[in-house]
Design a protein around this nucleic acid. Sequence first.
DNA 1: CGAAACGTTGATCGTCATCAATGACGGTGG
DNA 2: CCACCGTCATTGATGACGATCAACGTTTCG
Lengths: 215, 215
Amino acid sequence: MIKSNQPLLTYLQQRVASGQRKEFIQHRRFAKGQHLIEQGDQPQQVYILTRGVVKCFITEENGRSYVLEFLGEGEILGELEGLLESTNLSTIEALTEVEAYQISQGFFRNELVVEPAFNQLLLQELALRLSRTARRASYQQIFPLEYAVLNVLYLFGESGLPISKQDLADYVAVPLRSLNRVLTSLAAQNLFTTFTTGQLIASPEKLLQLMQSYY
Amino acid sequence: MIKSNQPLLTYLQQRVASGQRKEFIQHRRFAKGQHLIEQGDQPQQVYILTRGVVKCFITEENGRSYVLEFLGEGEILGELEGLLESTNLSTIEALTEVEAYQISQGFFRNELVVEPAFNQLLLQELALRLSRTARRASYQQIFPLEYAVLNVLYLFGESGLPISKQDLADYVAVPLRSLNRVLTSLAAQNLFTTFTTGQLIASPEKLLQLMQSYY
DNA sequence: CGAAACGTTGATCGTCATCAATGACGGTGG
DNA sequence: CCACCGTCATTGATGACGATCAACGTTTCG
């Protein structure tokens, strides 16, 4: 659920360690809550996360938000805009304190040409994101809310939820009130207790079984 | 709405005309209704359309389908699987008679390395699709069905709808019956007549105005 | 000083009313 | 025969409003 990209992180660290042209790569830190990228703005930079988690979301004209992804270590930000030379598709907000390499769009585009390994990593990253986004669009449209929530709970398993309920609500694209309704209804089925801390009690098998009842 | 990619088509035609390694590139034809790619199968080929329109859709376990895109000339198919070496994300069905270049995954991957221009075109294509898919996931989740339908009608404008109502219904992710309901309700507002042939009467401005009433 | 009592604040829930989307079934018209 | 629509019933999701509860710092009293 919180996507990461270890190979890209490793690649970049080696790239930095090699020392070549490292003047184009800055390491920056962002406080929790800060926006790395603002939807609709003209983009300038590309980031690659080295620590922390960000939320990547689109805000619609009526004020409601849709969370595209939660991104963690090794994930790249601003790459779509770097490739398309368009304004920012989404806002990127730090959910924790975040550290990231910052590179200019020009350097980013140049790297794609001169570094086949980087090029390859980016192609795979884009392909994977497209695949994930498409799958999610599909099942969130087709199945009812409860299914999507079960899915999220299943993905987090017993590890606990590192994100706020409001963010989770935006992820499944409903108001917080509606998410809470579903959660209490699930809790009534003895699926878990004390959701507050993100702790599940029920077995993943039970969740899977419930999900399959929608087939 | 029917996405196309002229630069990629032009590139490929030049590539073929140059005659180099053209033994790896076959030109194939598919009848209307035929499936170029089947969801879940092990992929073998990458296609680039030269004529016709295909529907690219995911079928969920409960039998309902979600249309990801309608793709036309110059669009590439099977590239995600070629990059990720995964099973097919979606089914690709010919909506009209279709012609396409067919290349093997191996050749496809090799081209990405030896042909910077092709590599660049693919990066941009993936970035654009990701951007489109994300935007659509967002507004379809957040706005009611009528908004999505107005949006589609607006995009097609007065050119008429080249796709069936069932396909359109799958695109907005509702049963055909529900789509028809929305259409008749819109027709009652004098937005257009004789939708059967895909003809609109109303001005795009009027559609836009209606859409904005959801803000 | 320390513990109990208090008040404030934000998150959550019960309830009721409403709207959006779906399913079913039968009718109508090409 | 098939595509479409009218109607009615039902489910899913939302909005509003007030009640409740937990967290936390502050006040009060022994």
